[in-house]
Design a protein around this nucleic acid. Structure first.
Lengths: 105, 105
DNA sequence: TCATTATATCTACTTTTTTAGATTTGTAAA
DNA sequence: TTTACAAATCTAAAAAAGTAGATATAATGA
């Protein structure tokens, strides 16, 4: 459960993965919430893989792999509901990392 | 002159390079300043490549290359005096990076 | 000038990461 | 149950990063 700076640096050392962090920071700015609301959900649960993949333009397997990388670094967490997996930021880790950079780097 | 987060994440996504950042944060804790003082220098100018290389145990060419990578990310700056090149942290960039992580990540 | 030392650059090999197609797994709907 | 869809995993090829020996450059001292 401990935050691992090296894993986080590696996860963030890729432009698209950084981009995904930004998209998930303000999903309403980058994705359409309508279909989520229709299902009784909202972006608090995260954004599903397919939406992220479509926005990225990369292959499904690549995005799935990127998201797994970011989850292993615990920058993201995921929840499966029905056929969909929703990814959202893990703000706790992000805060810990930010504090690590501030005090330890 | 602008701080580039992606270059910085890449530079830090390697254990030895992270280690070097730590060594250069408190050189007096990890290196012997005597020979520097004898030359009218101190660690404020930085630590020379040979000392960093000896401590790392890696090949000279590898360390030279690592230091160049970190300098390109502007995490480090260097100064040549005679035969020696001294590397020190660029605290300005480090601060900017820390603020970037805090506010933008 | 010549030899020595410190560092950077060049070169080649190895390892890791990126990338994407194909397959598998899990879920839901027909 | 079959079918369809979303996402994860498998596989393999291409690109990038890591590694270290050899060579080049730059400075010093004999």
């Amino acid at each position: 459960m401990g935050m691992e700076p090296l894993l986080i640096y590696k996860a963030l050392s890729n432009e698209m993965r950084c981009q995904i962090m930004q998209w998930l920071k303000n999903p309403e700015e980058f994705f359409d919430e309508k279909l989520y609301l229709q299902q009784g959900l909202n972006f608090r649960i995260g954004v599903c893989v397919g939406d992220i993949q479509a926005k990225s333009g990369l292959a499904q397997s690549v995005i799935s792999n990127y998201l797994a990388t970011m989850q292993k670094a615990s920058l993201l967490e995921s929840e499966r509901i029905g056929k969909w997996t929703y990814y959202r930021r893990n703000e706790k880790t992000i805060k810990q990392f930010s504090e690590y950079v501030q005090t330890k780097l």
